[in-house]
Each structure stands twice: as C-alpha cells, then as structure tokens.
Amino acid sequence: MSLDQEALYETRLELAGFLVDAFADYPPEKLLDRLLDGAVTLPEAGVSEELDAGFEKLRAFAAENEGRDVAAVRDDLEREYTRLFVGPRPPVLPHETYYRDDTDFRGKGLAEVEASYSAAGWSPPEEYPEEADHAAVELAFLRHLIQRQRRGAEEAFGFQRVLHETHLSEWVDDCVRDVLANTDEPFYEAAAHLLSGYVAFEGEIAGQMS
C-alpha cells in the first residue's frame, strides 16, 4: 500500500470514528480534549462543500469553547444531544426506517438492514444500544468495511456499494436537513455537514472500486 493510500485510509477511518461518536451518544471527553487542544488537524477548504462546512463548524466549536473545562463542554453537548435525538419528543430520529417511505419506522426495513450486516459477517457491537438502522450503527458497519478494505479484502467494496445503494445514501441527507433545522450548536451542525459530505465521499469510492 502506498503512503497516499495509507493516508486516505487513516482519514476515512478517522471521519467514520468521529461520526460514530457524534451520533451514538454525546461525545467522549477524549474526543473533546483533542478538539479543544488543537490536536485534530482539520483540512483547509477545498475538499467538498459539505465537508468544508463541517470542518469550519468544528473550528467554530473549538474557538467558542477555548479554555473551558472539558467536562462542562461535554455536559452542554449531553443536554443538546438529549434534546435533539432522545427527547421526550426529539425533533430528529436518526434512523433509516424513519426516513424511508417504503417501510414503517422500525418495521420490516430494520430486518433488511440487519440482513446486510449478516451478509458481510458483521453484527453491531454490544455497546451500541440503538437499533440496527440507527445512523451510528450503519456508520460503524461502514467503518468495519473500510478496515477490511485496508487489509486487502476486495469483497468489502461490494458490501459497501450495497450499503450505500440500498441504505445509507438513501436517507442521510434528509436526516442532516432535520439536524441543521433544529440546532444552532456548532458541534452538531459540524456533525450534520460532515455526515452528508462523508457519505457522499464514501459512496463515490464504493462506486469506483466495486
């Protein structure tokens, strides 16, 4: 593997990991430490419109919280995550079956998502309490496929193409619009823009390689 390929895999996995953390629960202090200490190097503009917007929002988040206690920042994000995604009556439900017109919320479409995981020999980690169609779980599956690709498993590109064509790419932009319409917290605005841009980026890779 060339250095450029290795760097690309590192970037893909880092973005996937950030998005899993952002949507699975309120972010861990370790991630916030890195963001607020400047330990995360964010690309300059020119990647894509959505990714650029996400990185800019992360810079705004870091600047807004510079010098604050990390635990206090996490408490703020916990409250916003709960309001946005947990409720009661959350304005955003980041589940594929909520946004799909061809299935009921947590209905038969849930089994179809689970079947995609099973076909690739993967099951969601036990630490993810959400249903299989939750954004964080689908992103964790994508991360798993990227890790397999990095190890040379070419069939993982085919599984990724199916993930995009039948699941992930079919609903995330609608979810992103709802997140952006319901929060002015830079961290979650960043997560929304990065989700849209990252899924589009990965969809292009899967289409080219599978």
Rank of each mutant, 00 (worst) to 15 (best):
V70H: 07
L145W: 01
E6C: 02
R151S: 14
D25Y: 10
G46P: 04
D101A: 13
L3I: 13
Y128L: 15
D37A: 15
R151L: 15
L163W: 04
W122N: 03
R74V: 04
L3H: 12
L42N: 06
L195W: 07
P43H: 09
E96Q: 12
L32R: 04
S118T: 12
E44H: 08
D37F: 05
L42E: 08
D102M: 09
V176D: 01
D133H: 10
V40E: 11
G17C: 05
P43A: 12
E204K: 13
G152W: 13
L142A: 11
Y81I: 01
G197D: 07
E204A: 14
T97L: 07
R83C: 10
P186G: 08
F159H: 14
L15Y: 08
E189Q: 15
V137R: 03
F61R: 01
G67R: 10
R34N: 04
E127D: 12
Q147L: 13
D184H: 11
A53H: 06
A206E: 01
N65C: 02
D76F: 01
R83N: 09
W122V: 09
E14F: 14
L139C: 03
T41V: 14
L163R: 03
P27V: 02
G107F: 07
R100W: 10
V137C: 08
V86M: 09
E185D: 14
F85P: 00
V20T: 06
A22K: 00
A60Y: 04
E64R: 15
R83S: 11
H95F: 15
L194Y: 06
T82K: 10
E44N: 11
R150L: 07
R89F: 14
D102K: 10
Y128I: 06
D33Q: 13
L58E: 00
V172P: 01
D173I: 02
S116F: 04
F18H: 03
W171S: 05
D69P: 00
H167S: 08
L36A: 07
L139W: 01
A72Q: 15
D25G: 05
A45M: 06
A140T: 05
L84P: 02
D184M: 03
S196F: 01
G67F: 12
G87T: 08
D174Y: 11
S196K: 13
S48P: 10
D133M: 07
Y99C: 07
E114F: 09
D4L: 12
R74Q: 15
E202R: 13
A132T: 08
D102I: 03
S2R: 14
D104E: 11
P27D: 05
L168S: 00
E189L: 13
L142M: 14
